[in-house]
Design a binder for these strands. Sequence first.
DNA 1: GCAGTACACGAACGATCGTGCTAATATCGG
DNA 2: CCGATATTAGCACGATCGTTCGTGTACTGC
Lengths: 197, 197
Amino acid sequence: MAKGQVTRQTILERAVAVSSVTGLEKLTIGQLADDLKLSKSGLFAHFKSKEALQLAVLDQATDRFTELVVRPALKEPRGEPRVRALFERWMAWSRNTILPGGCLFVTASVEFDDQPGAVHDFLVRAQQDWVDLIATTARFAVEAGHFRTNLDGKRFAQELYGILLANYHFTRLLADPAAESRTRTAFEHLVARSRAV
Amino acid sequence: MAKGQVTRQTILERAVAVSSVTGLEKLTIGQLADDLKLSKSGLFAHFKSKEALQLAVLDQATDRFTELVVRPALKEPRGEPRVRALFERWMAWSRNTILPGGCLFVTASVEFDDQPGAVHDFLVRAQQDWVDLIATTARFAVEAGHFRTNLDGKRFAQELYGILLANYHFTRLLADPAAESRTRTAFEHLVARSRAV
DNA sequence: GCAGTACACGAACGATCGTGCTAATATCGG
DNA sequence: CCGATATTAGCACGATCGTTCGTGTACTGC
């Protein structure tokens, strides 16, 4: 790998970590350059615009998400085991165990939901893909005979998403130590009433 | 009311509307002054600092929320009717019907969950109060015999919060037209399995 | 009508933002 | 080892940020 690619990668890793705490908008080129002991213009040359940097950060984060959440879950057999794996990995991701400051996509989604542009479009596509994956995973569980046949995959996905968003909210802002336990209970109930009778 | 209080109120109303779209951080004094055809310094003099402006905006938004969501719901009789009223008003609030750009508190919570300061503290207190109110309302429904006696109010609150956060996410970012219908279904299911047997 | 206060304005400040330029330096194939 | 190229630094720019200060103006109580 060429030298430029190495530093570019270093920059991106730091940028993902920073922006998962502060958000994508107050990720600033000068600050990032200082952190990495680079010159502002030297760092800038790698991306040519701030929007391109933001997109690269999202791309990097998406890769990490796929690697750490999606791919391991897809190794589980279709059906309830895979649904559970997805949930567990997702929880670990949105905790600060993997990245500091929680989930970058939650922050970015709120920041850009009203702000048109390439970043917004990227986010919509990524989130849409993720929701579709959850829905498909739920439908596989139907095919496997684990979940009831009249289950709506999309509805399952939206409810699961809500459970994790609530977990995020109660854990991060309210710092409620009982939140995660309630989240797991809610998930168990969702699975229970999705099961085949 | 003195002249100053009038303009201050005008400023705040506009500021609440703007920041519910853009968030509290990119609510900028210069831009706000231009919108209202005031000088930057003249507007600034009303608040003496940006943080004070942000706090005033949150305070104003809290008042509106109390007036438009909480108070009407409290007029309903304790029990399931009040729970339903809370849900309906909350939905209307987080839609763009009342404020443009959705719920200011969701945006602000994500923006400030990792950023210490007076704004963060205000948000934590306000959201805590709101969650407590939901939990209490659920417990009233238990007392009224509508909900089962072993219902955990806090857990009910967290689940309801998740349902609305998912609605927010799917409606705003993903612009999914079926989201609200799924939200209502999820709410009905939550109520149904909270009911007394 | 006058004094005193409340209010708004304009100009300017230091800082920081993203973004160009140009020059120096590091890397690497031949 | 050299020359081409890729990579970084230095500097400056216009814009915008929050904030301060001095000045004018409108309003109010006496």
